[in-house]
């Protein structure tokens, strides 16, 4: 598998607060990686640095072999890293269709092409196909501000995925979603992204979600990565159990009906 993202010795401090310390991560093509960690552990800071929103204090980030430190989010997006947001960032006063039409137009056009009409029938077809894949076609003409939280999340992720990124970073895709809707939402997203052969890196608090969808886990604690291992291994790692999962999580010990966590049966 090709190496696409290489983060080495990454540090970030805000004054006296250390948000990231000696982060070293490599990501290969087609991996699905879960980022776990308590609030304030540095998960979002990590995504913000990779996508150019925050400049690291020191360290190197290489994407597809070239350094992307100091580039702006828009440049990094063009290179092939897209992201979704914990709080969905949509065009709230527009319909779901118009949101994605805008996204497709921006992604597809550049230079003089920007002066071609925003709407054309072929683009509308692509948008509708995208809406179907992300199962939000029922909300096509609904205003983005009036969507249920789960659908708004899906729209946000669908907008990021429409950039056709090599690497997609999802910041808590299931936060604010009820438990019974979470798996449905993740099934839709992961299926669509697998078809696109997109490498995915997502932040998640729910260990059931992590176990079900990811191949590898990065566990953050106080700005450091305390564990970088395949999911089954990470779930039994003592540091992870103590600092990330906490005492209240006993599921992997008591039940292992789930394929990913059965090695400790």
């Amino acid at each position: 598998m090709t190496l696409i993202l290489e983060v080495s010795d990454l540090n970030k401090s805000f004054g006296a607060v250390i948000a990231a310390q000696d982060i070293n991560v490599t990501v290969h093509e087609h991996e699905v990686i879960g980022i776990i960690g308590a609030n304030g552990a540095g998960k979002t800071t990590f995504i913000n640095m990779v996508t150019g929103y925050l400049k690291p204090t020191s360290g190197q980030i290489k994407f597809a072999g070239r350094s992307i430190v100091g580039l702006k989010p828009r440049d990094i997006t063009v290179l092939g890293i897209a992201r979704s947001f914990q709080v969905p960032q949509v065009f709230a006063s527009e319909t779901v269709f118009d949101n994605l039409l805008m996204v497709y137009a921006i992604v597809e056009e550049s230079g003089l092409g920007l002066l071609a009409p925003l709407y054309n029938d072929q683009r509308a077809e692509r948008v509708d196909a995208h809406l179907i894949r992300y199962k939000i076609a029922d909300y096509r003409d609904a205003n983005a501000s009036a969507l249920p939280q789960g659908i708004r999340k899906l729209l946000d992720i669908a907008m990021a995925a429409a950039c056709k990124p090599t690497l997609l970073m999802l910041d808590e895709p299931t936060s604010g979603i009820s438990i019974d809707e979470k798996f449905e939402l993740m099934d839709v997203i992961m299926e669509a992204l697998r078809q696109d052969k997109t490498t995915v890196l997502f932040i998640e608090h729910d260990m059931e979600i992590v176990e079900r969808y990811v191949s590898r886990v990065l566990a953050f604690y106080q700005g450091r990565i305390i564990c970088d291992a395949p999911v089954a291994e990470a779930m039994v790692n003592p540091d992870v159990r103590e600092f990330v999962i906490g005492e209240e999580f006993h599921r992997t010990r008591t039940q292992n009906d789930n394929g990913a966590g059965e090695n400790n049966a």
Binding site: T77, M102, V107
Partner: peptide, 27 residues
């Protein structure tokens, strides 16, 4: 006609959500 182009239509995008515009790869 300009307002109907992609560039013109981006007015809406800028007004509604600049962060998203940046993360779509445009300034």
């Amino acid at each position: 006609l300009y307002l109907k182009t992609t560039l013109g239509g981006m007015s809406m995008a800028v007004r509604e959500n600049e962060i998203r515009v940046e993360y779509l790869g445009y300034s």
